[in-house]
């Protein structure tokens, strides 16, 4: 039995991790894996921290990614990378969007946004960080940043045997297919 692989997509409510995880799970199913995916909906969506957990292998039981078990963590926001660090497997990889969303306590002056997160994490584990929104903007639409991050994730997990272009075609509105394919390959090549 092959080992179960664990992926965490973390960010802030409203950043749209949903489409990226939908394409990801759809590709994994086509490749013949058992897949479980878990999200929490509800109050946390209103600007709170959110996570999508994806697990795949021959047979998956729990839908939850435990501490110290994520092969890759994709953080759509940098402080969320720090928040989920204890879920990364020793030797695992962080893909971090170099992008900040200021939480309410920081806005109100009650707390300070921690400086130097990415450098700090680089001292601990393998980190790939880049400005996904800028990459997507260069391709024509900053909203495609989630697919840029998906491309980087697929590269990090070595999921090359799956036809990701076909998955993008199947899951994205027709007028955004070209943009998202470019975004995926841009992320994959980083």
């Amino acid at each position: 039995m092959s080992e179960v692989k664990n992926i965490l997509l973390v960010g802030v409510g409203g950043q749209g991790t949903i489409l990226a995880s939908k394409i990801l799970t759809s590709g994994l199913i086509k490749a013949g894996y058992d897949v479980k995916m878990s999200e929490i909906h509800g109050m946390s969506q209103r600007g709170g921290s959110v996570s999508t957990q994806v697990r795949y292998g021959d047979k998956v039981y729990s839908p939850i990614v435990g501490k110290g078990s994520a092969d890759v963590i994709v953080a759509f926001e940098e402080m969320e990378a720090l928040r989920w660090l204890d879920h990364l497997k020793i030797g695992g990889k962080m893909v971090i969007n170099d992008y900040r969303i200021q939480p309410v306590p920081v806005n109100l002056g009650a707390a300070e946004y921690p400086e130097g997160i990415i450098e700090h994490l680089k001292e601990k584990c393998e980190v790939l960080s880049f400005k996904a929104a800028e990459v997507a903007t260069e391709l024509g639409n900053p909203k495609a940043m989630n697919i840029v991050l998906l491309g980087a994730l697929v590269k990090a997990m070595g999921l090359d045997e799956i036809d990701w272009d076909a998955e993008i075609e199947a899951n994205v509105k027709a007028k955004f297919i070209d943009l998202n394919k470019k975004a995926f390959h841009a992320g994959y090549s980083l």
Binding site: V12, G13, M43, S44, Q45, R46, G47, G48, S49, G66, K67, G68, S69, M79, L82, R83, L85, D86, H87, L88, I90, P103, V104, P105, V106, A111, E112, Y113, P114, I117, H120, K124, C125
Partner: peptide, 20 residues
């Protein structure tokens, strides 16, 4: 048994949900 994890002293700031 507890899993082996990365640890850090750097503190995160909470993100309480807010009215949109």
């Amino acid at each position: 048994v507890e899993p082996e994890t990365y640890t850090t002293d750097m503190k995160t700031v909470v993100r309480p949900p807010a009215l949109c």
